[in-house]
Nucleic acid binder design. Structure first.
Lengths: 203, 203
DNA sequence: TAATTTATTTAACACTGTTAAACGGTACAA
DNA sequence: TTGTACCGTTTAACAGTGTTAAATAAATTA
């Protein structure tokens, strides 16, 4: 009877090994590098054995995604527990969110659909800077008369531009990946965010 | 000699056809559905001739990406030209950016690395709502004492949450696809954005 | 020890991107 | 006209992918 337990324990262990091996491969070579045969190699089995533990490759990704959400939630709770004031708690939690994204980059990618393999492309393409240049100019125009005769520095413009871009691109990707909220909420977020940043420039 | 021109014109046309066929396939079945053989089917050729026009599949994606940036730039310029005041121009341009993302969803995805195939996963996973719930609670706590005895509505909380989330997730994904800036700028954007939204709550 | 169940692998299928070789036809020189 | 060089195109193949069914090895049970 005890042998049954031992076997079950072993099965649970190799299941865990599969997940660990997967994450290891992804961390070494990105999500494109993850294949069933490579996982099998890593755990010193052949590929079909994996299907005894996961119905398909997607089930592995799903399990890693779940682990990611649990880990993130743990970090958020820890951050919250370090403060008493809600304002301080919020600040700490979003900072923890930020840190998690880069500490567990691969998990964050699969959790929220951030594709990095396409980044090589736009890097060597001058056209990719066109949108930024166009908006950059208008931000400069908006800042200059206010601060006259002080000319805004690169950094000052940069911060404003990335604040704009982040909130809008963020809302877009959230909606594309997860179907965020209602259209009304989206436009409310958009409008108040944009006018808020503009106000922060014009005083 | 004119036949040379005709041939060159035909070559340019099939090159264009390849790009059109690719975009058509992607719009019908997503980026995963795009394969060299399907493109060949669409233009009524066999796969290897595509390599006469593009060195590899990546070159096709790159060309579509370039088209996307040009199209977006055109939209931004058009939006700008419709206003005179820089503040109004900025507002219109970011709205145009937003509209472009959904009008040319597939192009936006490849331009900025937005992965949608993973969205099926997190949908049926209760853990994916854990982070939101944790932060949601703190936002409620932050809003309640201010508006007392008025209890904040679902919508009011939602707007604040998504504003937070958008700017932070946006900044994260922008940095992951390697279009980000310096660490100092990042943290400046983060800190000012977070404290700005908190101030917009606490008055 | 023999039979049966379980664990694991081998082989295969249908895909993928990509390349080399073969084929068909056209253009041009002898 | 014939031969040859070229060009466009296809066929065949390779290595890789996820996945499944069948064959085999190992362990357990009778």
């Amino acid at each position: 009877m005890a042998s049954k337990d031992r076997i079950l324990r072993l099965k649970e262990e190799t299941r865990c090994n599969i997940l660990d091996a997967s994450l290891k491969i992804v961390k070494e070579g990105g999500w494109d590098a993850l294949s069933m045969r490579k996982i099998a190699d890593e755990i010193e089995y052949t590929a079909p054995i994996i299907y005894e533990y996961f119905s398909n490759k997607g089930a592995i990704l799903l399990e890693l995604t779940r682990k990611g959400f649990l880990l993130l939630a743990k970090d958020l709770e820890a951050a919250k527990s370090r403060h008493r004031l809600p304002a301080k708690q919020l600040e700490a939690m979003w900072l923890a969110y930020w840190n998690f994204a880069f500490a567990e980059k691969e998990l964050y990618q699969v959790m929220y659909g951030v594709e990095t393999s396409c980044c090589e492309m736009a890097k060597k393409m001058p056209e990719s800077e066109l949108p930024m240049d166009l908006i950059w100019d208008v931000i400069v125009e908006l800042m200059t008369p206010i601060m006259a005769p002080h000319v805004p520095t690169e950094d000052e413009i940069c911060i404003k531009y990335y604040t704009f871009w982040s909130v809008i691109h963020g809302l877009i990707s959230i909606n594309m990946v997860n179907r965020g909220t209602s259209d009304e909420t989206n436009h409310e977020v958009l409008k108040t965010a944009i006018s808020g940043i503009i106000r922060s420039i014009t005083g």
